[in-house]
Simulated assay, not measured.
Amino acid sequence: MGNPSSASTDSQEPQVISCSDAATTAKSDDRSPPYKPNVMRFLEGVGISTPIAENYSSEDFYSDLLCNHLKVGTVRRGHVTCFTTVKPTITNALGGLHGGAVAAIAERVAIATARTVVGEDKDIFLGELAMSYLSSATIDAELIVDGSVVKSGRNLTVIEVGFRMRKTGKLFYSSRATIYNAPISKL
Rank of each mutant, 00 (worst) to 15 (best):
R108D: 03
F61A: 10
D64I: 00
C67R: 12
T25M: 11
T74S: 13
D60G: 04
T91F: 02
T25F: 09
E59S: 14
T25W: 10
S18K: 14
P88D: 02
S63G: 07
S18G: 11
P88R: 00
D60W: 03
A104F: 02
R76M: 04
N38M: 15
D64L: 11
R31L: 13
V75F: 00
A104W: 08
G78A: 02
E59T: 13
T85S: 09
A106M: 01
L65C: 08
R77I: 06
L94M: 10
S63E: 08
C19M: 13
C19R: 14
G47W: 03
G78E: 09
Y62S: 08
K87T: 15
I52R: 07
N68D: 05
L43R: 08
A101P: 00
D30S: 12
D64G: 15
P37G: 09
S20W: 10
G100S: 06
G95S: 09
G73S: 11
K27D: 04
D30V: 10
F42V: 09
S32D: 14
F83Q: 15
T84S: 14
A53T: 08
R77G: 00
A93V: 15
K71I: 13
S63N: 07
G100D: 01
L43Y: 06
T25S: 12
N55F: 08
H98D: 07
K87I: 01
G95T: 09
L65A: 02
G99P: 07
A26C: 07
H98C: 03
R76Y: 00
G100I: 04
P33I: 12
N68A: 09
S57Y: 08
T91C: 13
S28C: 04
L43V: 12
A23R: 15
T24D: 04
G96K: 06
Y62E: 03
G96W: 01
A23M: 12
L66M: 11
D21H: 12
N55R: 13
N55I: 04
I90E: 03
G73A: 09
E44T: 10
A103K: 02
P51G: 02
K36F: 11
T74E: 09
F42K: 13
P33K: 15
T74F: 01
S58Q: 12
P34T: 12
P51L: 00
T85Q: 14
N38I: 15
